[in-house]
Design a protein around this nucleic acid. Structure first.
Lengths: 159, 159
DNA sequence: GTACTTTTACTCGGATACCGTCTGTCCGAGTAATTATGG
DNA sequence: CCATAATTACTCGGACAGACGGTATCCGAGTAAAAGTAC
């Protein structure tokens, strides 16, 4: 039970896209280069983020990606959902129903309520943090390093 | 990112072992039969529960398993730990360190704090519920069915 | 009837195979800006 | 100089290969109760 590595990559990718000036765009390969991940696989992650309406894509020459929402409206949980999907961490298998020989309408899983609640509190924490808050935190901790990254973005962006 | 099915099986297995009278023992195969799972794989789960000090085993003829602790001292989280292991759900990959070109002592992951906190609250919920509380809940909801199961256990137990 | 041996029914733990999912690669198609070409 | 065609640099989405972990099976070894055997 481990979170996919794609979630972390996606968060940082969005953090980079957040450095773009208005209407500017960054090609996917530039981002994957900065992240140091495999370009082809990273493209698949980007498409998931597009499907989830977190970023927009522009096709053709001078194409690329940019944020679709304001950074304060992109929660870490949104990124998680986009990459991992919305299925819950626990899926009951109905063992208890067989053991107790329960009818259809009585079907139950003692653990479901508990697990759902646990996952819900977990989710709540991930909903608190947004790209904006992450961005501010990192610029506070590493102002000059982040400025350098921003500079890099400006060199690679188009439009 | 899905919880292993073994966690649910283990919880129900312990729930069954909780029906044993004092000093009685139940062979692993009887349990797996009741759960309707593959006997060989289920044995591996049982051994994990033994290693985690949740249950004790008796070898030889008339051998089997029984609870090692009182049901109120076995939390769902203990079972989870025994099966899934104690590794955290999120493991940072250090991408940000490379991006910002951080030194060793500055190494950081913006997401670690958040993820750790999320997992912590999740854990807390799983620590609340114990085998005892699950057992009481199920006997309240299905008193006669649970009594039937208890009867089955008495037929299969040894010693 | 007692001491000893054999059988039996379990757990223990390793080796191994299967299978689904995550990771990663490749390719053809679509798209739009840029460049080349022809009049 | 303008219209059109070809090239280029991207995204899109599917097909597919490899790695890894969870699931599942098998087997030999250890253990202790029970059953069998010898005297």
């Amino acid at each position: 039970m481990q979170m996919k590595t794609g979630v972390e990559q996606s968060v940082y990718a969005i953090l980079i896209l957040n450095m773009l000036p208005n209407r500017a765009i960054l090609p996917g390969e530039a981002i994957s280069q900065q992240l140091g991940t495999s370009p082809t696989y990273f493209q698949k992650l980007l498409r998931k983020l597009v499907s989830a309406d977190l970023i927009t894509s522009v096709t053709g020459v001078k194409g690329g990606f940019k944020l679709k929402r304001k950074p304060e409206e992109i929660r870490v949980y949104d990124v998680y959902l986009a990459i991992e999907g919305q299925q819950s961490l626990y899926s009951p298998s109905g063992i208890l129903d067989d053991m107790l020989d329960l009818e259809k309408e009585d079907e139950c899983c003692l653990l479901t309520d508990l697990m759902d609640e646990a996952e819900s509190t977990w989710k709540t924490v991930l909903e608190r943090e947004t790209i904006k808050s992450l961005y501010e935190e990192s610029t506070n901790r590493f102002p000059e390093k982040m400025e350098g990254l921003k500079e890099w973005v400006r060199e690679r962006m188009v439009l």
